[in-house]
Amino acid sequence: MKYLFPVLCSLFLSLACTAQTGGGVKSAGNTGAAQGIRMNLDDITAQTAIENVIFDTDFSPWGRLIFPADSGYRSGTTLGSLRLTWYSHIDAAKTVEIVRYFKNQTLRGGQFFFDIYTEEEKRLDPRKRNTGLFFFRGKKGAKSAICSAGGGFAYVGAMHDSFPHALELSKHGYNAFALIYRPGSQTACEDLARAIAFMHEYAAELQIDTADYSLWGGSAGARMAAWLGSLGTERFGEKVYPRPAAVIMQYTGLSEVYGNEPPTYACVGTADGIASFRVMEDRIRRIKSNGTDAEIEIFEGLPHGFGLGTGTVAEGWIDNAMKFWERNIQKR
């Protein structure tokens, strides 16, 4: 299977190396923060310490996965000052909203974090302890989506690149999952395949509709969505599950087209120094030439990692992506 995943581009590798030099890579579990913190909902503001969120007893044991498990890829000490490697336009208000959403869910007593691997699987591969699905509940019985953040296959930038998307989808009534996966192109796709399997196997308990589901991703996460959409769960260690009704991709310079791509929406900025808008535009053109629905939005002057695009020329792209998905649900 190695031929499916060529070595990451030198830009990603050099940036990843740069992010790990200097003070050295630290684990989020070794920050020295006091244990046993329990925040009130009103305590969660832009001034809230990131460590207080990680170690909040209501968020145990998954609080450490809200932010990158490898803290070498983030900076800032508060929710308002959070910065993630390779990402622009991090919205502090959205970061606060997401943490408050998690706190609200814990206060209501509902489960919204799910392990995708058993204890035995995690014992055999300890990296699987840093995986799981955050569930953003929409309407019961509504369609479902899985969002995968980017991070150059070096870390998972969920706070900016998948949590906001999943939350927005849930506000529109959809049931959305945000995947925390093992960095690395192969392992990330294995984890996404497992997440798809989990979603289908527990659909009745979760009260969700998995028919015509969609896969969403930014940067590395967009590659994951595209690869699973084209190659299927069976190519990554799971049994055969239905392919997605739509793949939604943000800012990734993926060029390969196999000829069996699902309907695909893409968006990217012209000032993206990591993902070429021309490469993305060409891929969409080739998918369309195969008779498959495909669409791209190109935003003048935007760099890599604009997320929801709030306050930029890209604002509203997620509404267009949802309409694209809905259009392809209706076609099936």
Results as ranks from 00 to 15, higher is better:
1 M>N: 13
2 K>F: 10
4 L>Y: 07
7 V>F: 11
16 A>S: 10
17 C>K: 09
18 T>V: 08
20 Q>K: 14
20 Q>V: 10
20 Q>S: 14
22 G>Y: 07
30 N>C: 12
31 T>R: 15
33 A>I: 06
37 I>Y: 02
39 M>A: 12
39 M>V: 09
48 T>M: 03
54 I>A: 04
61 P>K: 13
66 I>N: 00
69 A>C: 10
70 D>S: 11
71 S>Q: 13
73 Y>I: 05
74 R>F: 09
81 S>K: 04
86 W>F: 09
89 H>A: 11
90 I>A: 01
96 V>W: 00
96 V>M: 03
101 Y>F: 14
104 N>K: 15
105 Q>L: 13
106 T>G: 03
107 L>G: 10
107 L>C: 11
113 F>L: 07
114 F>T: 07
125 D>R: 12
127 R>Q: 12
128 K>A: 06
129 R>A: 13
131 T>L: 06
133 L>Q: 05
136 F>K: 03
136 F>I: 07
137 R>Q: 14
146 I>R: 02
147 C>P: 00
149 A>R: 01
149 A>S: 14
154 A>D: 05
161 D>W: 00
166 A>V: 04
171 K>Y: 09
172 H>C: 08
174 Y>N: 01
176 A>T: 01
183 P>K: 03
184 G>V: 04
187 T>H: 10
197 A>H: 13
198 F>R: 01
199 M>R: 02
200 H>Y: 15
205 E>R: 10
207 Q>Y: 10
208 I>T: 08
208 I>K: 00
217 G>R: 02
219 S>T: 06
220 A>P: 03
220 A>W: 00
228 L>M: 14
230 S>C: 11
232 G>N: 09
252 T>W: 13
252 T>M: 15
253 G>L: 06
255 S>P: 08
255 S>I: 11
257 V>N: 13
264 T>Y: 02
266 A>C: 14
267 C>S: 11
269 G>D: 07
269 G>V: 07
270 T>Y: 07
273 G>S: 12
274 I>G: 01
274 I>Q: 02
275 A>H: 04
276 S>H: 10
278 R>V: 15
283 R>Y: 08
284 I>W: 05
285 R>K: 15
285 R>G: 11
290 N>I: 08
296 I>Y: 05
298 I>R: 03
311 G>M: 10
321 A>E: 02
322 M>H: 02
323 K>V: 09
325 W>A: 02
329 I>K: 05
329 I>M: 12
330 Q>E: 15
